[in-house]
Design a binder for these strands. Structure first.
Lengths: 187, 187
DNA sequence: ACCTGAACACCGTTCAAGT
DNA sequence: ACCTGAACACCGTTCAAGT
């Protein structure tokens, strides 16, 4: 009835996270605060706390979304090494696809997992399908994530980037490191 | 003369950074703020801005100190692979030796380097002495730092740590990743 | 069930002024 | 040269109260 209120419709976690990403893009991680986020959603700041326990939960949801994109964009692979290579590249892309994405993921506390064992299985699944044990799958994945996250952190660090840019080919060196890592895993 | 004022003596950057580390240990990265830091030094908050341009410079100095400890603790090595292995372990130890050390280093912007070329040479020196080119030295080091920083970030992430602790041996998996990485570098 | 208004206890930083 | 006092423009979060 009231078409004048063109704004909100529904305020759920998904809209909240989407608006948070938009704000992140515009103002960076330091600009991502509750009051501007609320006003972007046509609402007062305390309203956000109905949908989310606190800011750190929001950051956790954002990090989770970034990882989800990376996992989803790994194509089917012929063997576990190729899966890990594609996963590493997908992670780097996912971190770089949002302003301060790497810093966000390095800062964010992991969202409380539902069932621990279930979740581990889900994460390990694509590698277990390619004949790794669950232990190996988790261990190798942890290494690839660490490498990609650390690398993306450096790349996004302004002064560090400018400093290294003159003597380092970021794309080529990332590729060298990733391939060294994945090739070095023994089973 | 005035022994009652047992406090400050001198307020220089070194005392500032030392106090900041002490505060970090007690209250973590979110507790590291300018007013408590100042009062710990027996001074008002604005006084800090005489010694440091802003908080991000302070964080940069802290990160630099952590890296300096890691570099200094790498023993002489017989070849560049062993140097990189020792460096990777030293980094992990250095990050873990302060509460939120990894998050601090992932967040901090690099301090403005003096002379770019000089600094690169200094950093590359131990590896160049072991017969790598400066390009290789910087590239391989960047990969090892990325891996160690990313790994330490995970390890320090409370929920993530608890979640993975049941099915992952952190020490062993770090060693596997580091060795895979360093062994994989070709020259 | 979902949101507002008002408040609490903080932040980082600037700047005139003191010594 | 080094520091204080006071202020500005913010924070995250709680909580009673509204609808």
């Amino acid at each position: 009835m009231d078409m004048a209120r063109s704004q909100p419709a529904l305020l759920d976690r998904d809209r909240l996270v989407a608006a948070a990403f938009a704000l992140l893009e515009e103002d960076g991680l330091e600009g991502l605060s509750m009051r501007p986020l609320a006003s972007r959603l046509g609402v007062q700041a305390p309203a956000l706390y109905w949908h989310v326990a606190d800011k750190s939960e929001l950051l956790g949801l954002m990090a989770k979304a970034i990882y989800a994109v990376a996992y989803a964009s790994v194509p089917a692979a012929a063997d576990w090494r190729n899966w890990l290579l594609a996963f590493g590249r997908a992670l780097r892309t996912a971190f770089a696809s949002h302003r301060d994405g790497a810093r966000l993921c390095a800062t964010a506390r992991a969202p409380r997992a539902l069932s621990i064992a279930d979740h581990a299985q889900t994460i390990a699944a694509p590698l277990v399908a390619l004949h790794l044990t669950e232990q190996q799958a988790l261990s190798f994945q942890a290494s690839v994530i660490s490498f990609a996250l650390g690398w993306a952190s450096f790349e996004a660090n302004g002064p560090m980037h400018d400093y290294l840019d003159e003597m380092l080919d970021f794309d080529a060196s990332f590729e060298i490191g990733l391939q060294a890592l994945v090739r070095g895993f023994a089973i």
